[in-house]
Design a protein around this nucleic acid. Sequence first.
DNA 1: TCGGTGAGCTAAATCGATCTAGTAGATCGA
DNA 2: TCGATCTACTAGATCGATTTAGCTCACCGA
Lengths: 306, 306
Amino acid sequence: MRDPQRVTLNDVAAASGVSRATASFVLRDSPNQSISAATRERVRQAARDLGYVPHAIARALREGSSRIVVLSLDVALDGNYARSYVRGLDAELDAHDHALLVRYEHAGTEATLDAIAPRAVLRFGEPYLTGHELDDSGGWRDGLAAHVSAQIGYLAGRGHTRIAYALPDRETPLRAVRLRFADLAAERLGLSPVTPFSIPVSRTGAADSLAEFRAAHPAVTAVAAFDDDVALRVLAAMRDLGLAAPGDLAVIGFDDNGYGALATPALTTVHIDAEAHGRQAARAILGLDAADLPAAPGRVVGRESA
Amino acid sequence: MRDPQRVTLNDVAAASGVSRATASFVLRDSPNQSISAATRERVRQAARDLGYVPHAIARALREGSSRIVVLSLDVALDGNYARSYVRGLDAELDAHDHALLVRYEHAGTEATLDAIAPRAVLRFGEPYLTGHELDDSGGWRDGLAAHVSAQIGYLAGRGHTRIAYALPDRETPLRAVRLRFADLAAERLGLSPVTPFSIPVSRTGAADSLAEFRAAHPAVTAVAAFDDDVALRVLAAMRDLGLAAPGDLAVIGFDDNGYGALATPALTTVHIDAEAHGRQAARAILGLDAADLPAAPGRVVGRESA
DNA sequence: TCGGTGAGCTAAATCGATCTAGTAGATCGA
DNA sequence: TCGATCTACTAGATCGATTTAGCTCACCGA
């Protein structure tokens, strides 16, 4: 079932009366080759006329890896961060003649990756979402630290001094990191550390947890959430308990996921434009300089809940 | 930068004292080859010992296409349908030694696809979500028709006879199809056709549209929505207008997206298990029989809004 | 004892692009 | 006039797996 009309480099070489090697040199623009302008033009013209498209599989076999970058995801592509990150990554790779493919992680990942010999495999969000273990000072301009800081700062600016940090009840490596940055931000603002608080997925469970938490920590007046998902669960629990935001408890989410605007009260959240992060990741993978890229700004979208 | 420790077929052949051809025959289990049991065992043992993994790029070059199937998406992978579809597709391809990669559509798609010579390119949801233009009868067991029918049927079962169909205001090829199936379902149930109704993204716009719609169609007592997203917009608009669901207007969504449960009132919706659809798509692509696969059932998740 | 057959294997072509190690011929300085 | 150097190109190896076309025996029947 081979494609019978595929135009190969051999065809181009034959059509322009040169060897395959010369044709390749011209089309690849290889350095250290002296080829006359006339010949170059003939080869290029032939390639254009025949509609030559290099066969990427063959090239990959020769080069040892394909021009594909795989993004490995273990979660849904939810939230504005993820969406803008992928947009930037895709655009930048495109600009450098590479392609992005997304892989949903599960068993068998190894074999899959082997199958396309990607130039690189990227785990979603690295190094933004992880890798903060050692570096406390960095990342305050546009990293996770800055974004968490904006979240806490918004609540502080509204006069809140006792703040809870609402977390999903499943384990994630991010929990500890986010909590630490929240504490650091609180410290910088002269507040006491945030009080962590897990909220379950089930709606009744969420209400029970919140009631219990409120009883144990009556001084808390505001909740910063791990993400909008968690924040929406907090809002739902509050409604079920007859509490109003922001009056009884102010709530701020993280990473504008599109559903917060539909809640009542509408969810205040942190919106992160991660397109630059995506571009940075692309440059890093390709070994290019990324110094000229802008930062990924986070801004608070003030709605009703805080 | 070639991987220096890659184990090739040559290594396996050398280690087991046979030619490359023989090794390939054994490992591929090629028919029409007579190879002694002893030799087969030696080759297999060597492959195991060395940890041989066939180089998929080389194989793809030889075979003309790789064992990769690309799923082309133009939307976010939202909702339960999409997630379960991908799960099934992935699992089934895995079972047949193929791999799934997801491609987010945009300019430059052609070049990307060329780069991995995929065995097939699949557009999301086909033939479930499209291709209904000509075929009215199909899909009443587990297709889109059946699922829309379940949605309308649920409202009918609750005594509603004048039903609106809420649609997103952006154009999508699905609008017309869904609307037709809703009308067919209404007709089967002896109801008058559904009244279409577009709801904008902006929250104030949504409230205005709904108020206007209610004024124009006072007899309507229930809304079936295009998806949960639209349904949540309807619920938000209702709250903004001081209306209660299901008292003033019953609302049912479509394709349980996870956020409906957090709304107040919690959103009643149609939950579709599309894993079988994903598996069917995989079989179709690989040219295998899919007769033994189960149907993709849809069921109504009754919560509070209808 | 010869032709035929089948078992058990192998050499080499193939897929398409890349790139090393050349060759042929022109030009130049001494 | 000889070697050196440069320009302009090419033959062929290479990446790794698959597969066609054979090759060498052993054995069988006549």
